[in-house]
C-alpha cells in the first residue's frame, strides 16, 4: 500500500532518537539523584563510585524503563488493532472495557478467594495467577464486545458496552470489598492504580513473551488490517479470510491488553490516544508503517509519563494511571476539537 515514493525513514530515525533520549531521562531521574556520568558508567559496565547506585539502576530503574517500553508499545498497538478491527476511532483497551475486564479478573482473584473461602482454600494470588486471571477477564470482555460488534453495527453501542463493563466491575469490586479483608482490598487498590515499578526480571521476561507474541500476531495480520480499512465486505472480496484474521487480531489484542493490565494494572488513554497522535505525525494509513510507529511512540510517551510519575528527586511516586489520564484525556479532546471528527 505504500505507493508514494515517500519514505518514512526520517520520522522513524527521529522517533528512535526520542526513544533513546526518553529512556536515558527515565533511568537518569528518580528519588535518588545519580550523576549522569556515573549513570553511563553503570550502563556500560564500568565501575561506579557508589555501589548502591549500580544496584538502583540495574534492579530498579532499568526493569522499570523496560516495563514502560513494553507497556507503552503494547497498549498502543492493541489500541491500533482495535480501532481498525472495530472501525471505530474511539476504540481502545480502556474505552472498550478490556481493562475493566482485566480488573474484574484481578479483583475476583485477589478478593474473591476470601469471599468464597469455604469452597476454595487455596492461596494462589501470585504473579502468574494474577496475570492469568486478568487476561481471562479481558478476553471475556473482548469476546462480548466482538459478539456485540457483529450484531450491532452502531459504533456508539460498542462504547456504551465498554462503559457498562466499567460499571459492572466497579459494582462487583465494591461488593467484594465488603467481604474481604483490608489487606487484600489494599492489594487490589494498589494494583488498580497502575504501577510499572514493581516488576522483577523474571516477571519482565514473562511480560516480554506475551507482548512479543502479540506483536508477532499483529505483524502477521498487517495485510488483513489494511484490507479492513475498507470494511468487512470489501476485505472479504479482496480474499481475506475474515473469520481467521478476526480471531488472530482479537487474540493479539487480548494478549497485549490483558497481559499488560495484569502486570501493570489498568493504564488509561495510551491505547486510545497514541494511534491518533501517530497518524498526525506520519500521515500514513498503511499498518506496515503504523505498527512500528505506534509502538515506538507509545514507548516514548510511557517513558515520559513514568518520569513524571516519579516526581524526580522526591520520594513520592504518583499512580501512573493518573498521569496517563491527565495527559491522554486532553489530547483526545484536542484531537476531537481540532479535527472536528476523529477519523481513523
Amino acid at each position: 500500500m505504500i505507493v508514494k515514493n515517500k519514505t518514512y525513514r526520517w520520522p522513524f530515525i527521529a522517533m528512535l532518537i526520542m526513544l533513546v533520549i526518553s529512556f536515558t531521562i527515565n533511568i537518569g531521574l528518580g528519588s535518588v539523584s545519580i550523576p549522569f556520568d556515573e549513570l553511563l558508567n553503570s550502563l556500560f559496565g564500568n565501575s561506579v563510585g557508589n555501589e548502591s547506585w549500580d544496584y538502583i539502576i540495574w534492579n530498579y530503574r532499568i526493569p522499570k524503563a523496560f516495563t514502560a517500553i513494553l507497556v507503552g508499545s503494547g497498549l498502543s498497538l492493541s489500541g491500533l488493532l482495535m480501532q481498525t478491527l472495530f472501525r471505530n476511532p474511539l476504540a481502545g483497551p480502556f474505552v472498550l472495557g478490556i481493562s475493566s475486564g482485566a480488573s474484574l479478573g484481578a479483583a475476583l482473584l485477589i478478593m474473591g478467594s476470601t469471599a468464597i473461602s469455604g469452597l476454595l482454600t487455596f492461596e494462589f494470588v501470585n504473579d502468574v495467577s494474577l496475570a492469568i486471571a486478568a487476561s481471562l477477564g479481558s478476553f471475556m470482555v473482548l469476546l462480548v464486545v466482538v459478539i456485540v460488534a457483529t450484531r450491532v453495527k452502531d459504533t456508539m453501542a460498542l462504547l456504551i458496552i465498554g462503559l457498562m463493563f466499567g460499571s459492572i466491575t466497579a459494582a462487583i469490586v465494591s461488593v467484594l470489598s465488603y467481604f474481604t479483608n483490608a489487606e487484600k482490598l489494599q492489594r487490589y487498590i494498589y494494583w488498580s492504580f497502575g504501577s510499572i515499578g514493581n516488576l522483577t526480571w523474571p516477571q519482565l521476561l514473562l511480560l516480554s513473551v506475551l507482548v512479543l507474541v502479540g506483536v508477532l500476531l499483529s505483524v502477521l495480520s498487517i495485510k488483513s488490517l489494511n484490507a479492513l480499512l475498507l470494511g468487512e465486505n470489501y476485505a472479504r472480496s479482496l480474499g481475506i479470510d475474515l473469520k481467521k484474521s478476526r480471531y488472530i487480531i482479537i487474540i493479539a489484542t487480548g494478549l497485549l491488553a490483558g497481559g499488560i493490565t495484569a502486570f501493570a494494572g489498568p493504564i488509561a488513554f495510551i491505547g486510545l490516544a497514541v494511534p491518533h497522535l501517530t497518524r498526525q505525525l506520519f500521515n500514513a494509513m498503511d499498518h506496515k508503517i503504523l505498527l512500528p510507529a505506534v509502538m515506538i511512540y507509545g514507548a516514548v510517551l510511557m517513558l515520559l509519563c513514568d518520569t513524571l510519575a516519579q516526581l524526580p528527586t522526591s520520594a513520592h511516586v504518583l499512580p501512573i494511571n493518573a498521569i496517563t489520564s491527565i495527559i491522554g484525556a486532553p489530547v483526545v479532546i484536542w484531537l476531537l476539537v481540532r479535527k472536528r471528527k476523529m477519523i481513523f
Binding site: M1, V3, K4, R87, L228, L229, L230, G231, N233, Y234, R279, M285, D286, I343, F344
Partner: peptide, 12 residues
C-alpha cells in the same frame, strides 16, 4: 456501502 476509513488516499 461506504468504506470504513476515509483517511486513505485515492492511490492507497
Amino acid at each position: 456501502e461506504p468504506i470504513a476509513s476515509k483517511n486513505l488516499t485515492v492511490i492507497e
